[in-house]
Design a protein around this nucleic acid. Structure first.
Length: 262
DNA sequence: ACATTGACCTGAGAGC
DNA sequence: TGCTCTCAGGTCAATG
C-alpha cells in the first residue's frame, strides 16, 4: 500500500541507484500500466536519456529524463521499484523495465496491476491538472493552512485525510495510524473536532509521516506504540492493551482502539 | 456535498 | 492436495 512514506522511500531509492545512467531500452510487459503512452513511443522518448532529478507529490513519483520530460509513477496498491544487475535477477510481476547501459536495470514491479506510468512535461502542472491537494509534507502546509483546509468540511475525518484532492499522500494505513496517535475516532466528523483536536492532529500527521520515512516505511522498523503492526483482528492495543477493533469507514478496513480514540 | 458500492486486479490465507 | 471464498486497498465511476 504505497502511501507518502513508501513513495518517498522509492524516490530516495531511485535517486541513489538510477541517476545519470544511460537508458538503452524500455521493455514493457504490461502495456495496460501505461497511460496516454505506447510502449514504443515511451521507448523512443527515453532512449539514450538519463534521469537527472526526482520529485514527489503525494503518492506520485516523478523522474526527470530531459527538458520538460518527466516519468510519472503511481504505485497503486502493490507497486514498487527494484534495481538489479542482470536480466536473470528480474523480479516476478515486473511490468516495465528500464535497461541501463551499465548492465543494471530499474523495474516497476506491481502484482496487482493498479500501478500507472505516464510522462508529463512538468510535475507541478501534473499535480494541479489531476486535482491533487497540497502534499501532506509540503513545508508550506502549516497549522493555519491546515485549519483552513478543515473548515466547512462535514464528512468523517478519516475520509478527509484520505481524500487526495484535499491532502495528497495519506492512504488507509497511515490515516488509521495518525488518528490512533492523535486519539481521535476515525468516524468523528470534521466539524465536530475542536481546536485542540485539530492542532493535535496536524502535529501528529507530520510526525507520523516523517517518522515513517525515517524508518524507510518498513512496518518492522516502526516505533513501539504504533498501531501499524497491529492491523489484525483480536490484536491488543500497544498503548492500553485493550482490544483493537476493526470496522469499515467509507468502505475501507479501519483499525482503531475504542479506549484510546474518542 | 457526502457516503456507499462495485469494478479493476491478483496473491495470500482460511475453510472444507 | 486443491478447490472456493474472502480479503487487501488506491482510484474512479455510478448511485443513494
Amino acid at each position: 500500500m504505497p502511501e507518502l512514506p513508501d513513495v518517498e522511500t522509492f524516490r530516495r531509492y531511485l535517486e541513489s541507484t538510477s541517476l545519470h545512467q544511460k537508458i538503452d531500452r524500455v521493455r514493457v510487459s504490461e502495456p495496460d500500466i501505461l497511460e496516454e503512452e505506447s510502449p514504443s513511443g515511451l521507448g523512443r522518448k527515453l532512449h539514450d536519456r538519463r534521469f537527472t532529478d526526482t520529485r514527489r507529490h503525494g503518492k506520485h513519483l516523478f523522474a526527470a529524463a530531459g527538458e520538460r520530460l518527466w516519468l510519472a509513477f503511481h504505485f497503486g496498491m502493490t507497486g514498487r521499484l527494484a534495481y538489479f544487475r542482470g536480466k536473470a535477477a528480474e523480479p516476478e510481476h515486473t511490468r516495465l523495465c528500464l535497461d541501463f547501459s551499465s548492465g543494471y536495470h530499474l523495474a516497476f514491479v506491481c502484482s496487482r496491476k493498479f500501478g500507472r506510468i505516464r510522462t508529463t512535461p512538468d510535475p507541478r502542472n501534473f499535480a494541479e491538472a489531476r486535482g491533487l491537494g497540497i502534499d501532506a509534507l509540503d513545508p508550506k502546509l502549516d497549522d493555519t493552512r491546515f485549519e483552513r483546509i478543515l473548515s466547512d468540511r462535514k464528512g468523517t475525518i478519516k475520509s478527509m485525510l484520505m481524500n487526495q484532492g484535499i491532502l495528497a499522500g495519506i492512504g488507509n494505513v497511515y490515516a488509521d495510524e495518525m488518528l490512533y496517535q492523535a486519539g481521535i475516532h476515525p468516524n468523528r466528523r470534521v466539524d465536530q473536532l475542536n481546536d485542540k483536536d485539530r492542532a493535535n492532529l496536524f502535529r501528529t500527521l507530520r510526525r507520523v509521516l516523517q517518522t515513517a520515512i525515517d524508518r524507510q516505511a518498513d512496518p518492522k522498523k516502526v516505533p513501539r506504540g504504533w498501531l501499524l503492526p497491529h492491523r489484525e483482528k483480536e490484536a491488543s492495543c500497544p498503548r492500553c492493551s485493550g482490544r483493537v477493533q476493526k470496522t469499515r469507514v467509507s468502505g475501507r478496513a479501519t483499525y482503531f482502539c475504542p479506549a484510546c480514540q474518542k
